[in-house]
Simulated scan of single mutants.
Amino acid sequence: MNFENVVFSFFIVLALTLNFGFFIGDIDNPVHHNQYELLAAILVNLIATILKFGDKSHVGAILLSTSLVADMQLLLAGGIWIFGVHITGETMTPNTMVSIVSLAGGAMLANVISVLLLVTETVLLRR
């Protein structure tokens, strides 16, 4: 068992599960979407992206691109949350929450693609 592959896979799957945990719930209800879970999803996605930089294969390039897409969308979602609530000092509106959750949903789709590529690559590996 290769410890490096275990860590790599761990962060890819953890990024997806944290993203899913934030995404699930009523799209416009802020009570269903925890800001700290979004922060955790952002941080784990960034770690997963850093781990993907070393792979020089074609699949590695696709994995990196899906991770960059997820990072971009989650960072935008976090930025909207910070700007929409903390900087303006207003309460969370349903429209703002919908924008945040929609971006997190796009990031989750990118993470699903990443996990599917990881599983496919693992299945196709020859011993």
Rank of each mutant, 00 (worst) to 15 (best):
L75G: 00
L63A: 07
F53A: 08
M1V: 09
D26Q: 12
S9C: 01
S102A: 13
V101P: 04
I113D: 08
V85N: 06
D71M: 06
S99V: 09
T66M: 10
F3E: 13
E90F: 02
I24P: 03
S65H: 12
S99D: 12
Q73I: 09
V44F: 02
G60P: 02
N19K: 03
I24V: 15
A70Y: 00
L76I: 14
G84H: 01
K56A: 08
I42Y: 02
I42F: 01
T49A: 10
S57A: 02
L75H: 03
A41I: 01
F3I: 15
T96N: 02
F23W: 12
P94Y: 04
D28Q: 10
T91K: 15
F23D: 11
I47G: 08
H33S: 03
A40R: 03
M72E: 14
V13E: 01
I24G: 04
N111W: 11
S9A: 07
T93K: 06
L14N: 07
S9P: 00
L43D: 05
F20M: 14
E121V: 05
L38S: 04
W81L: 15
K56G: 02
V59I: 14
N45H: 12
L16K: 09
A15C: 05
I42T: 03
I50S: 10
W81Y: 15
V123K: 07
N95V: 13
L74R: 06
I82M: 11
L118P: 03
H86S: 14
T66N: 15
Q73T: 12
I24H: 09
L43I: 13
L124T: 11
M108V: 05
A61L: 07
N5A: 09
L46I: 08
I80L: 13
G21S: 00
S67L: 06
D26W: 07
E4W: 04
L38Q: 04
L76R: 12
A77H: 03
S99A: 15
S65Y: 10
A70E: 00
Q35H: 13
L18T: 09
F11H: 04
K56R: 11
V6G: 05
I62Q: 05
P30V: 03
T88Y: 02
F10H: 15
I47S: 10
